[in-house]
Design a protein around this nucleic acid. Structure first.
Lengths: 345, 345
DNA sequence: TCCTGACACGCAAGCGTTTGCGCAACGCTT
DNA sequence: AAGCGTTGCGCAAACGCTTGCGTGTCAGGA
């Protein structure tokens, strides 16, 4: 007689079937105490027969933990999001954790809600890319002792774990590269204001200028708002200058797409007419003409480290906060104006 | 005196603070029955004061539902994954659902585990991109009455909800387009065998050939395994033919990347020397030279529909299964060998 | 004055687990 | 024959919530 399969088997069902108490069932499932071989076998048989899976919800209620982590991330804003996510999921699941996904839309109030929702689901910890001007939310998380790690957009506080890539030195290197090529007027297209990444990259740009003996001029940095459209607009702005830049540092890949479009529309040849380097590598960087010189973030590593940090904190809440800065790597191709290098494929 | 904030406030805390029973707290939180204005106000004040969020876990235990759906998806295999995911998350959260993410790695046994894990977390429903040769898993889900919708890779069964894009007619159109350009030997690079999408696209290719009065020849389709490397290899295979194809249909975007690389390596000019069309559009399709003629899947719409179907089934398990096929749209650019069209930007 | 309905609320029984105690049975040692 | 450490297991109390019943109060109709 087929069970009224409408509802899943519970420990009690297994217990009855195996002729033991639910206590015993629990213990064989979790291996929490010695159980006679014969009994264990009977229980396992019953489990097999019914397809019993256990109930994570009920277990969580009593243990307190959920073995799940929440990802409050800005899906829109993160171009390399898929890769990041994949790395995070992999690392988490390898440690037996499930990932709850929620989009912050990069807005402070959605972020609030999102975090609330995740917390009410009792996630053991939170991974989050702080929205611009978020401040209070992460402050609250910290003071509530919610295990949290910030990704990508790092904050200046030192009481929270965070991992992101190094922006200043990297952008400086990008800028300096253009300078060594002889450029004196190097422009920059910067990202959404208020984001630490945007600001650090501008800082890096200025640093690179300084190191190359060039002076900074505010008119040479145009904000592209981290978007395609913004990038295109910013390029126009820069080009409209009485004395336009002769080379460009672009703050992220989305803006680069805009730059590429706008350049084509104007018949401007990247690399020849206008050397460009960009922070962020993309899959197609070497497929366009000319191939793009980029700064590639170690995305996978960022994801992995974020999860590691989070799990470490979950297991030891007293642990002191850590900030991890991973260095991106320069992918030297041709959009900077350098001649083709030999591809090592 | 600060609470021992170690553990979150519960309904009981609120009840005490507001001087009511937990029953009342529950009812004001859920709006499940009339509560005097003054009482309600007191409760709300207490909630505000403590930062009470409710406990989804405990609630789930009693209600049975979790207001969450599981996404068992192949992160690696889905190139447009980020977009899909975003659409799904948005639609789900708009309906008050949270998304649990799990990677199937596109392997049948990981898929099994993944689904088990998700189910033990009591997700209300499952979104899944079936791994090649999965069969049994979705069979089990169906017979267990677990609300499920298949995405992208559709099965032939009619007792399960599914949504994906139309492959046959679309690929046929792509192929026919090359034929109208005068090509008689049109090759195809196909995806991982055993995937419905791969097979349908090959079918569409043959259909397009037939409709154009061309006959099919097995040597003209090379399997590129849906990967970059595979695509490059497949191109080599095809080119090594005694009588190589004069134009190419590529089965997905990853393989196209491989094709582009391999073509460049050989100094082959896509479009001029070898016209190519590809199923799947990519962000950079119009940034390469020549811009790619592609078939763009309505990814957002797929995600939305998938969630809608799933929620519909959750709310009415007796509902009869539905299969949704969304038509992709041709993005006619230049890699097919056609002259530049005027961009409408 | 008594009855009735509407309104406001509380009691307590679960939901499916985990886990601290406790008890029985068994073999050994003295 | 009594005492004792082991081994193997069950009882029952949580965990934080929802919800079917009840109970008490108060206003209005008879």
């Amino acid at each position: 007689m087929p069970q009224p399969r409408s509802s899943r088997p519970t420990q009690r069902d297994i217990a009855e079937l195996a002729g033991v108490s639910i206590t015993t069932v629990s213990h064989v499932v979790n291996g929490t105490r010695a159980v006679a071989e014969s009994t264990k076998a009977a229980v396992l048989r019953a489990i097999e027969a019914t397809g019993y899976t256990g109930d994570a919800i009920a277990r969580s209620l009593v243990t307190g933990g959920t073995r799940s982590i929440g990802m409050a991330i800005s899906l829109v804003a993160n171009p390399y999001f898929a890769t990041l996510m994949q790395a995070i999921e992999r690392e988490a699941s390898e440690h037996g954790y499930t990932v709850l996904l929620a989009d912050t839309h990069d807005a402070a109030d959605t972020e609030r809600e999102t975090v609330r929702a995740l917390r009410s689901r009792r996630v053991d910890g939170l991974l989050i890319t702080p929205a611009p001007g978020d401040g209070p939310v992460i402050g609250e998380l910290v003071s509530l002792d919610v295990p949290t790690v910030l990704i990508d957009r790092l904050s200046t506080r030192t009481d929270v774990d965070q991992v992101g890539s190094e922006n200043i030195q990297a952008t400086s290197a990008l800028t300096a590269h253009l300078a060594t090529l002889g450029h004196r007027r190097i422009g920059m297209i910067s990202g959404v204001p208020g984001l630490s990444t945007s600001e650090e990259r501008v800082l890096g740009y200025r640093l690179g200028l300084g190191r190359s003996g060039l002076t900074w001029s505010s008119e040479l940095v145009a904000c592209g708002n981290s978007s395609r459209e913004g990038g295109a607009l910013a390029l126009s702005t820069l080009l409209a200058l009485p004395e336009p830049p002769t080379a460009l540092v672009v703050g992220n890949d989305s803006m680069m797409v805009g730059v590429l479009h706008e350049a084509r529309r104007r018949g401007l040849r990247i690399g020849r007419d206008l050397p460009v380097v960009v922070y962020d590598d993309v899959e197609w960087a070497d497929l366009v003409d000319p191939p793009l010189t980029t700064m590639a973030q170690p995305i996978e590593e960022i994801g992995r480290q974020a999860v590691r940090l989070l799990l470490a904190r979950i297991n030891d809440p007293a642990r002191k906060a850590e900030t991890v800065r991973l260095p991106p790597t320069l992918r030297h191709r041709e959009s900077c104006g350098c001649p083709p290098v030999h591809s090592h494929q």
